[in-house]
């Protein structure tokens, strides 16, 4: 095991897969010479050269479209959208093309490609640079959606994504890049898709979260333990495929659930998770499923009010306490 940051774990995964498979190529805005806005692609140009690590024009829709064509032609592109907010400029290629091509062409082709996109709020980047768009992607069949919370998962999920023959949208959280953790040294360390991890075992309530929200949920669980509340924390790791079995089994054990999402509440993924829990745990639920979400507002700049819009450790802890005070 090595102690490393989430950023370095991603960087290591990219380097390892570029070394392992000559069909892997990297492109995106400022990923080569500038080494990436968040420096995830540091050192790649120097090691792998200009034909495999390429800067692109600021043309997000075409970044994705060219990756689709390249993937169809036998290359494995791992492209970066500078931030997930810019994915909205690429939704035509992502949704109308990337997720449809295999199906509408009768299964005669496949698209081994990864779209990496940093996102999430909390850096005072205001309304256009702070969005959490994971629900947009998991809503649409035809692409996998990975949302790593820890450095180990960042490495293992990215390697799985690159080796998978389906399109994968890989959502990195900007506030996690400097987080540290133990990462296995095995170059074949792969984290399978559709396998949630139990970050902490508990008996009173299940918290279901993903990405940075899983880290905050863990902190809330530590806080709540002092109050004698035992939380089980489930980190989803991938939103599609969605591992329902793990959190359903947990809620059947604890009888209570809080689902946490950083995205907006309106039609957000937490509503879907709550429905799955109600459907499968109706007889064992001791209280209504609680839900913690981002506020349904465009993100403000000022740090005093930005904080109100994003779920915090305290918000999650309060939601757990509320759930424990309720019963059916």
């Amino acid at each position: 095991m090595s102690d490393m940051t989430y950023r370095d774990a991603l960087n290591l995964a990219l380097k390892e897969e570029l070394r392992r498979d000559p069909s892997v190529v990297i492109w995106g805005e400022d990923v080569a010479l500038y080494e990436g806005s968040f420096k995830v692609t540091r050192g790649l140009l120097a090691e792998f050269g200009e034909e495999r690590v390429k800067d692109t024009p600021i043309s997000e829709n075409t970044i994705i479209g060219v990756a689709i064509g390249a993937a169809m032609g036998g290359v494995r592109p791992v492209v970066e959208l500078m931030t997930v907010n810019f994915a909205l400029l690429a939704m035509d290629q992502l949704v109308n093309h990337m997720t449809k091509i295999r199906y509408m062409f009768g299964g005669q082709t496949w698209l081994p490609m990864v779209v990496r996109a940093p996102g999430g709020g909390g850096s005072q980047l205001a309304a256009q640079h702070s969005q959490s768009l994971e629900t947009f992607f998991m809503h649409c069949p035809g692409m996998y959606v990975a949302v790593p919370a820890t450095p180990a998962d960042a490495r293992g999920l990215l390697k799985t994504a690159i080796r998978d023959n389906n399109p994968v949208v890989f959502l990195e959280h900007e506030l996690l890049y400097n987080s540290r953790g133990e990462v296995p040294d095995d170059p074949e360390y792969l984290v399978p898709f559709g396998a949630a991890s139990v970050l902490r075992e508990g008996t009173d309530v299940t918290i279901v979260a993903y990405s940075r929200m899983s880290i905050l949920a863990l902190q809330a669980a530590v806080e709540l333990e002092r109050e004698g509340i035992s939380c089980e924390v489930i980190d989803l790791r991938t939103l599609n495929p969605l591992d329902t079995a793990t959190f359903i089994a947990s809620v059947q054990k604890t009888g209570r659930a809080v689902v946490v999402e950083e995205c907006w509440q309106m039609a957000g993924l937490g509503g879907h998770l709550a429905w799955l829990i109600h459907r499968d745990c109706f007889d064992t639920l001791l209280a209504p499923v609680n839900r913690v979400s981002g506020l349904d507002v465009p993100m403000p700049y000022s740090r005093k009010i930005e904080k109100l819009c994003i779920p915090q450790m305290e918000t999650i802890a309060a939601a757990v306490r509320e759930t424990l005070s309720q019963k059916y």
């Binding site: 990756a67 689709i68 032609g73 290359v75 290629q93």
Partner: peptide, 21 residues
């Protein structure tokens, strides 16, 4: 392709793959 102009970047990508390979 039935989204007007959707095939442009895909053609560019196929050309890249051809050159790369």
């Amino acid at each position: 392709y039935a989204i007007v102009g959707g095939q442009f970047p895909i053609a560019v990508g196929l050309a890249f793959a051809a050159r790369y390979r």
